[in-house]
């Protein structure tokens, strides 16, 4: 009954082109690998970053993804979207890292990293005051905490749905589950996020630099 508009952009598009490039990489064309790298580097690093919330680690893991892709180029077959393959490797690596890290890293270190890791953002029309900056950072921290507290699969599903604008079918392929399972994961994840974050917009105007409308991108 309900259908979704196929208007996704970014990493989830041009599967044929990506596959063609990867086939060229398989045949020894290094330049095509550079094209794929430049095309998908940012979205991949950002996805991993939002998963693990550690910039150096996210870059290291993203490099490992590209390294694995390059090392196995000889056996590449275009049986799936290139980005599905890429994000599946990335998700596996991120989840492994999170599981290892959960045991190894102390809460104190985690808080310290998060505190020192906030990206500097500018309000486009005017310089933010110190108070606005503090409010913004507090809200950003709430968002990061809310995402970090989601179960790992829900977190991955939300990040792919929200920031990578992936179709349910592709998220399902990456997470190796059914589309209905993905919808269920997303429903529960957003339910949790609504309970934790919905007050943020209702409470006071935001100072985002992104000019968010919320309903349309």
């Amino acid at each position: 009954m309900w259908q979704r508009v196929n208007n996704v952009v970014g990493a989830a598009t041009s599967p044929d082109l990506d596959a063609q490039l990867m086939l060229r990489v398989r045949d020894g064309d290094e330049e095509s690998f550079r094209v794929l790298l430049d095309k998908h580097r940012n979205s991949l690093v950002h996805f991993v970053y939002r998963m693990v919330q550690d910039q150096p680690v996210s870059e290291e893991l993203a490099q490992e993804v590209f390294l694995r892709i390059y090392k196995t180029r000889a056996s590449y077959e275009p049986t799936a979207k290139f980005t599905t393959w890429m994000f599946r490797i990335a998700t596996h690596l991120a989840l492994n890292w999170l599981r290892d890290e959960k045991n190894a890293r102390s809460e104190a270190r985690l808080d310290e990293d998060r505190g020192g890791d906030l990206p500097a953002r500018e309000v486009p029309d005017r310089k933010p005051t110190v108070e606005q900056r503090m409010v913004y950072n507090a809200r950003l921290q709430e968002i990061r905490d809310a995402i970090a507290q989601l179960p790992e699969k829900q977190r991955a599903a939300v990040l792919m749905h929200k920031y990578e604008e992936m179709e349910y079918s592709q998220i399902a392929a990456v997470l190796e589950c059914s589309e209905s399972a993905v919808k269920s994961l997303l429903f529960r994840a957003y339910e949790t996020l609504r309970s934790r974050l919905a007050h943020m917009v209702t409470g006071a105007p935001m100072i985002s630099g992104s000019g968010v409308s919320g309903a349309k991108r």
Binding site: V45, R50, L197, A198, V201, S210, A215
Partner: peptide, 15 residues
């Protein structure tokens, strides 16, 4: 819609 807007706030650092 509010959650969606809140999530928009979180932009990652440049690579």
């Amino acid at each position: 819609t509010e959650v969606w807007a809140a999530l928009e706030l979180w932009e990652p650092e440049p690579v």
